[in-house]
Simulated assay, not measured.
Amino acid sequence: MTIRSKSAGLSERRQLINLAYRLLGSLADAEDVVQETYARWYAMSPQQREAIESPGGWLTKVAGRICLDLLGSARARRERYVGEWIPEPLPDRTEWISGRPGGGTADPADRVTLDESVNMAFLVVLESMTPAERVAFILHDVFRYSFAEVAEIVGRTPAACRKLASSARRRIRDSQTPATPAAQRADLVRAFKQAWQAGDIHALIGLLDPDATATGDGGGHATAVLHPVQGAEQIARFFADRAGETPNVEIVERTVNGQPGLVAQLDGVTVSVLAFDIADNRIKHIWAILNPNKLRPWTTS
C-alpha cells in the first residue's frame, strides 16, 4: 500500500530512510523510524489522510520528530554503551550482501544514497551535535527544507533553527580536512592493508598521521579496545600485533559509506568494517566497527 501512488510511496520511503539514517547514524533505527511513521499514517482514517495536502511533507515532519526524540534518548543509552559508539557502516549498493533471512536483498537499506553527508568522518561530527542542531542542519543543509519547515519539526522559531544550523555548520567546517582524490584515498587504504597483513610496523607508521586516532566499536558483543588508540606508532603496533593472531581472516577492499575502506572476513562472514579519514596524504582516523549488530548489511544470513 502506498500514499498516493506506488512510485510516490517508494520515493517517499527512500527519502525517509535517507533522512533517518543521517539523523541517527543507525540503519536499524532508521528502518524502525520509517515503520513507525507509516504506522501513524495508516492509523488515521481515510478522510484524515485525504485532508493532508502534502503526504510527503507530513511523513517527513513525523519522521523528523521521532528522530529528534530518539536522539535525546540515544545520549542516555550511549552512556551505558560498552566502549566507543561508532555510526553503523554502509556498503556500496553494488557490493551489497543480503542481510535478510531467506537471501533477498535488504530493502530499502540498499537505497541509502552514498554521498559526503554519510561518510564516516561527517557522521562522527554529527554525533557531537545537540539533537536540535543535528536535525536543523540535516534538514536544511542536506535535504534543503526551509527554516520555516524545520521549525515545525524542531518546535522552535525559524530564526532559532537558523542559528542551530549555523552552529552545526561551524562544527563541520572546523573538523573538515582538505579533500583527497578518491584514487589517492584508495591507494593509501590499499597500502595500509598490505602493511597490516605483513605486520610491517614501519610501513604502517609511514602511512599514519603522527597524531592519528584509531577507534573500535564492539558494543560488548565483540572484542574491541574500550578507548581510542592514539598516535601513529601505537596504532601501528596495535595492528601489527594482531596481524598474526587470526591467520584465517581475509582483508578485502570495499566501499564504506561512499569511501575506500576495508572489510575483515572470517570464513566468509564479515567480522569488522574499517573506515578511514585521510588528510595530507596520511591516515588521520581509523574507525573499526566490530559490533555484529552493526554489520547486518555486510553479512550473509
Rank of each mutant, 00 (worst) to 15 (best):
V256W: 03
A136W: 02
A132P: 00
V263T: 07
V269Y: 11
I235K: 06
A198P: 04
R77M: 07
G103V: 05
V112N: 04
S7G: 00
Q259C: 09
P131G: 10
K6W: 03
R49C: 08
W85D: 07
G57Q: 07
D200P: 03
G103N: 07
G9V: 04
E95K: 11
D174K: 12
G199M: 05
A224P: 03
I52Q: 09
E152D: 15
V229W: 04
A214P: 01
P178R: 06
A183S: 12
S128N: 10
V118Y: 05
Q35C: 07
V125T: 15
L114K: 08
I205G: 03
L262V: 02
A39V: 10
T94P: 01
T246N: 15
I278G: 02
E79N: 05
W298F: 13
Q197E: 15
Y42R: 09
F192S: 09
V269P: 01
N257T: 06
T223A: 12
P292H: 09
A121I: 00
R171Y: 05
R296K: 14
L71M: 10
D200G: 05
P260I: 03
I97S: 09
Q234Y: 01
T113E: 13
T37H: 05
R65T: 04
G25Y: 02
S167T: 13
V271Y: 08
V33Y: 08
V34P: 03
Q234N: 15
A165G: 03
A132M: 12
T270V: 11
E127Q: 14
L208P: 00
G268H: 09
D107W: 15
L188D: 08
P181T: 06
T94E: 14
R144C: 03
V125G: 02
S167E: 14
A195P: 03
R282A: 13
G155I: 02
W41Q: 02
L27N: 02
W41L: 06
T105I: 12
S166Q: 12
R144I: 00
Y145E: 12
R40F: 00
T299N: 14
R14P: 00
G9S: 13
G206A: 06
D32R: 09
A288D: 15
T105N: 09
K163M: 12
T177V: 15
T215L: 02
I205K: 11
A106H: 04
A186W: 02
E88D: 13
A195L: 06
A198F: 07
L19I: 15
G83I: 00
Q47V: 13
A203Y: 00
T177N: 11
